[in-house]
Nucleic acid binder design. Structure first.
Length: 364
DNA sequence: TACACGTGGAC
DNA sequence: TGTCCAAGTGT
């Protein structure tokens, strides 16, 4: 065993975080945890993981589940395509792998939503295959340990980091070793304030020796994100409100929203823009009423300010007889008390909560 | 290769 | 308040 591998695994044996998908966890539990942990920190995942495992204790249960139920359990966690892919993966395991999760990296890679990192993580952690799982933590740790100067995301850099990980892997305990590197990255070798004082590897860390810890790993500059103005309708019919299901593949695919869209420069007003969007999406004329809140939100690649309005169908309009060819296929008139059952992104959930509060006030 | 894809926490 | 960043994958 190389010098730093022993130090690292000794550190891990004393300092490993206690997590519900470690020790005595089934391969299925590792699968669920790895999907949830993609681009998401441990503390955020924990409550979602517990609820998910309670609802779907095993792979067969998940495969048999309704997609909307899976999305509802994922609500708030983000990157909802992960939930759809996890669901699809469970079904593929049942159909193509006799209900048993594949035990090697190559077969795991055949599952939707399982890429190079996740396949190696499951193979090493759940099945003991000697493969390096290289995530953001591990790339940062190796970039510092070996003073890799190239920027993350560049091909040469990524190849170098993959090679370092593969060559350094502690083949006797690949799952523990991969997780030791991730724990070190998540608790000691932090992106902004690395705690070199308490690092078991500082003596062999080239970045530490060269005074480059704060500078590495280098990153490519991020593009500025555009800011959009969105208008949305709380379309009322009696006590019910209209929600629409977003198309899969798009942002928040499979989730429900209050219909609307981007305000265009050509729109004379927000009310006019909302009428235009509703005609395009639903094929009906509406009367726009009072403003119903302003919501700011930041997605990964753009920011929005959403203006919601109360609205009603114009007299004589019906969603059953739309004008033209509306873009939205799946719609539902829902009582406020039922809105909680529909998976929604953050902003639409906030609007839904206001609708529920609004309704309970009016009911008094 | 570059971009789309969510949300919350740290500073 | 704004920016960065997090156990990545698919296109």
């Amino acid at each position: 065993m190389g010098q730093f591998q022993k130090r690292l695994i000794d550190w891990y044996d004393k300092n490993a975080r206690v997590l519900p998908w470690r020790s005595s966890a089934s391969p299925y539990q590792v699968l669920v945890s790895e999907f949830m942990l993609q681009q998401t920190q441990v503390d955020t995942v924990l409550p979602y993981y517990e609820r998910f495992l309670e609802a779907f204790p095993n792979l067969e249960g998940l495969a048999a589940a309704d997609e909307q139920e899976v999305l509802k359990l994922w609500e708030g966690l983000g990157y909802y395509r992960r939930a759809l892919n996890l669901h699809r993966s469970a079904r593929k395991v049942v159909e193509c792998f006799d209900g048993k999760l594949p035990s090697n990296r190559d077969d795991l890679l055949k599952l939707p939503g399982v890429g190079p990192y996740t396949a190696a993580a499951i193979a090493s952690i759940a099945f003991g295959e000697a493969v390096a799982a290289v995530d953001g933590n591990i790339r940062r740790v190796y970039a510092r340990l070996f003073a890799v100067e190239g920027a993350l995301g560049e091909k040469d850099t990524e190849t170098k980091l993959q090679s370092l990980a593969a060559d350094s892997l502690l083949r006797e305990r690949p799952g523990d070793y991969n997780q030791a590197l991730m724990d070190l990255g998540a608790t000691v070798c932090l992106p902004r304030k690395p705690m070199c004082d308490s690092c078991p590897l500082f003596e062999v860390c080239l970045a530490f020796q060269k005074g480059l810890v704060a500078a590495l790993p280098r990153r490519k500059p991020k593009p500025k994100v555009p800011h959009l103005t969105i208008v949305a309708a709380v379309l009322q019919d009696g006590e019910k409100v209209l929600i629409a299901q977003r198309a899969k593949g798009d942002l928040l695919g499979g989730m429900w929203e209050f219909p609307g869209g981007k305000l265009e420069k050509s729109d004379a007003s927000m009310e006019a823009g909302l009428k235009r969007e509703i005609m395009e999406e639903l094929g009906v004329l509406i009367d726009v009423g009072e403003p119903f809140g302003v919501y700011k939100h930041a997605y990964t690649h753009y920011k929005i300010t959403l203006h919601a309005f109360l609205a009603r169908l114009k007299a004589g309009e019906s969603l059953d007889k739309p004008h033209g060819e509306p873009e939205t296929e799946v719609l539902a008139w829902v009582l406020p008390g039922d809105l909680i059952n529909y998976p929604m992104g953050k902003v639409d959930r906030l609007i839904a909560e206001k609708v529920i509060a609004h309704n309970s006030i009016n009911a008094q």
